[in-house]
Computed example of a mutant assay.
Amino acid sequence: MTLSRRRFIALSACAAVAGPTCASPSTSVWRGRALGAEVVVSLRGANERDIWRLGQRIAAQLDRLESALSLHRASELVRLNETGLLAHPSPFIAEMIALSDRLHATTGGAFDPTVQSAWLAQAQGRRTDVPFGWSKIDRDRGIRLPEGMALTFNGVAQGYAADLLAELIREAGYQDVVVDAGEIVAMGQGLPVDIVGDDDRVLRQIVLRDRCIATSSPRATLIGPDAAPHIFHPDGRSIRWRTVSVAASSAAVADGLSTAFCLMQEHEITETLTQWPDASLVLRT
C-alpha cells in the first residue's frame, strides 16, 4: 500500500463517499471529509460490523472537530473571528492555542495563526496591511482578538485531526492502522509513503512505521488575482522552500513545523528541531 502526501491510494475500487469499504480480506477502509480534506482510515483485523460502528465514532469525532475549528461552517473559530471574543473555548480550541504557542515560540514567529485576515485580503485582491501578531491575543478571560484580527488553525488542524482519530482507533483496540486526514499517521506495519511536490511529481518515497508525516508546499495552492502562494507570513518574510516534509510522533506537530519551515532559513530550521527532539526533517526542496 502506498500513500501520497494528500491522496490515499485506495485498496479497493468500491469506495463510498462516507462509510466503510472492504479493501481486502483483512483490511477495511473508512472514508469521509473534514476541514477541507478527504479523510481515509485503513485498518486490519476489523469485520464489517466493527468498521461500521467505529466509523460512526470517527464521523462523530470529526463533526465535533469541525464544530470547533472549521472556517467553512458555523464553528467556535468562526464565532471568534466574527465577534472577537470566545468566552469559553472548547478543549479543541484550547489545545490548538497551546500547541500554537509552542510552535510560534520555537519557530521565531514563522508559525502564526493570526495570518487569517491577511490571507483573506490576499485571496480577495485587497491590501494586506491588516492586524496580526500572536502576542496581541488577550487570553485573560477566554480569548479576545484585536479588532480586524482573525485566526486560522489550517496550518496544524489536519494533523491534529489525524492524531485524534489515531488515538480513538488505538483505544478501540486496533494496532495496524493508517489515518490520512491531509497528514498521515501510520501505526503498526511499515507503510511506503510518496512525498509529492507542488507539481505532483514524486520527490521521495519513505517507509513510515509508528510515525506521522506532514508535507507543505506553498505553491501547491495559489490564491487571489496575483496567484499568490497559500502559505505566507503577514510580516512579509519570503518563502524559502517549495516543499517541506517533517516526520514526528504527532501529526499536528509535523503539520505545524512543515508549514513554518517553508518560511525559515536552513539554520533556523536546524535550531527549531533542537527544541522538538522527536521531530525530523525528511525533505526540503
Rank of each mutant, 00 (worst) to 15 (best):
65 L>M: 11
97 I>S: 08
130 V>A: 06
136 K>F: 12
21 T>V: 11
182 G>L: 00
252 A>M: 06
122 Q>E: 14
152 T>V: 11
262 C>K: 05
59 A>Y: 11
86 L>K: 04
211 R>D: 04
116 Q>S: 13
276 W>L: 09
94 A>D: 12
47 N>Q: 10
260 A>D: 05
186 A>P: 10
21 T>K: 09
192 P>I: 02
27 T>H: 12
210 D>H: 00
248 A>R: 07
264 M>G: 02
241 W>P: 07
205 Q>E: 09
192 P>S: 03
46 A>Q: 08
146 P>I: 04
173 G>F: 02
252 A>Q: 06
8 F>A: 15
11 L>G: 15
185 V>K: 04
124 Q>D: 13
257 L>S: 03
182 G>I: 01
200 D>F: 12
192 P>E: 00
211 R>V: 00
112 D>S: 04
97 I>D: 10
232 F>R: 05
266 E>T: 12
150 A>C: 12
18 A>T: 11
263 L>K: 09
233 H>W: 01
219 R>M: 13
154 N>S: 14
4 S>Y: 14
19 G>M: 01
226 D>Q: 15
84 G>H: 06
58 I>Q: 04
114 T>F: 01
22 C>S: 15
201 R>P: 05
180 D>S: 12
182 G>M: 00
152 T>R: 11
169 I>P: 01
104 H>T: 10
98 A>Y: 04
